[in-house]
């Protein structure tokens, strides 16, 4: 019993050595920032309109999936310290805040993907400051998060 176990241990040690040169992905995917991307920090949209979401995703090996989530920032619960500081509206209690949360699949086997989605903005929601969250994974399950502050205003 003990002998078997020792040989098992030894075997494991050898396995461990031989498999260590396998290529592991240690790099996070990238949400590429550019002027043509949308939405950008401090963008304003109208109720009943559409956010023409467009971002380029990249990974060193293979992309996973992405998710878009929009939640209100009426309580100023988070703040972005990025280069652009958006002017926030007054704090307020949410009545009927917009909650958007949808996951999207990226085709298998790609390392670059241009994501484009038209996100319809409901008409009956609270106007105000919102956070537009982009979450992106790669196949190895590294995640990249990008937060964009946007403003929803009443329809013109």
């Amino acid at each position: 019993m003990k002998k078997n176990f020792l040989s098992l241990m030894l075997l494991c040690a050898l396995c461990a050595c031989s498999s260590s040169d396998e290529e592991k992905d240690m790099t996070k995917p990238e949400v590429v920032e550019s002027d043509t991307a949308c939405p950008l920090e401090c963008d304003t949209y109208h109720k009943g309109g559409t956010i023409p979401f467009k971002y380029l995703f990249k990974d060193n090996q293979e992309l996973g999936n992405f998710n878009i989530e929009i939640h209100n920032n009426f309580d100023h619960h988070t703040h972005s310290g990025s280069a652009v500081e958006c002017e926030l509206g007054a704090q307020k209690q949410p009545q009927n805040p917009w909650v958007y949360n949808k996951s999207f699949e990226i085709p298998e086997g790609v390392s670059t993907y241009l994501a484009e989605e038209g996100i319809a903005i409901p008409t009956d929601i609270d106007a105000g400051d919102y956070h537009f969250m982009i979450r992106l994974t790669d196949k190895a399950s590294w995640q990249q998060i990008k937060s964009v502050a946007i403003k929803i205003v009443d329809a013109e």
Partner: peptide, 12 residues
């Protein structure tokens, strides 16, 4: 606890 590339209810 294995992280996956998938999303459920908006989170990984």
């Amino acid at each position: 606890m294995n992280p996956t590339p998938d999303y459920v209810e908006g989170l990984q």
